[in-house]
Write a protein that binds this DNA or RNA. Structure first.
Length: 156
DNA sequence: GCCAACGTTGGC
DNA sequence: GCCAACGTTGGC
């Protein structure tokens, strides 16, 4: 069970690129490649070790929340921003002044029942959830505790 | 600082 | 593959 003060987050990943099964295999991974300032700021300024992370499959069939992870490290610079060969290379970044930050996330469990976007959308107790807002496309976003607890209760 | 052009996300 | 939504870039 999450402790007091635990925050809830949702991260998106295309399962063709990195799925919850990949995370289960790896146990833990650096959440590299986030290149959106708002998403970065959540990781940099607000995430704490032990926070609960919903793992969302985007661009998939079906789309939805596949399981749970946890924030497993303090924030640190995304190493790919220094790698000239990476698509995530950031020419403005230096070791002293990194631009992109990340945390590690650790596998917790797959949901017994996958929470498809369709079922999330039709759940009145999730009304107002950021994920469900039209045009919303943040790849790292907060989840309100009430919404988080409801999803946990129904997903197993 | 404005804003048009362009690129990306992500559901469908 | 389409395209709406939205973020970023760069000229001015």
């Amino acid at each position: 069970m999450p402790g007091k003060g635990t925050q809830y987050w949702l991260v998106k990943s295309e399962p063709d690129v990195y799925s919850i099964d990949d995370l289960a295999r790896d146990g833990k991974t650096a959440w590299t490649g986030v290149r959106n300032y708002q998403a970065r700021n959540f990781m940099r300024d607000a995430m704490r070790v032990g926070d609960v992370v919903f793992f969302y499959h985007s661009n998939a069939t079906p789309t939805g929340i596949a399981g749970l992870a946890r924030v497993a490290s303090a924030v640190y610079p995304d190493p790919l921003q220094f790698d000239k060969k990476s698509e995530y290379f950031e020419p403005r970044a230096t070791e002293a002044k990194p631009v992109w930050m990340l945390v590690d996330i650790a596998f917790e469990r797959k949901f017994k029942s996958f929470c498809s976007l369709e079922t999330l959308r039709t759940d009145r107790r999730l009304e107002g959830m950021l994920l469900l807002k039209r045009g919303q496309r943040l790849s790292v976003q907060p989840v309100e505790p009430a919404h988080a607890k409801h999803i946990l209760a129904r997903a197993g």
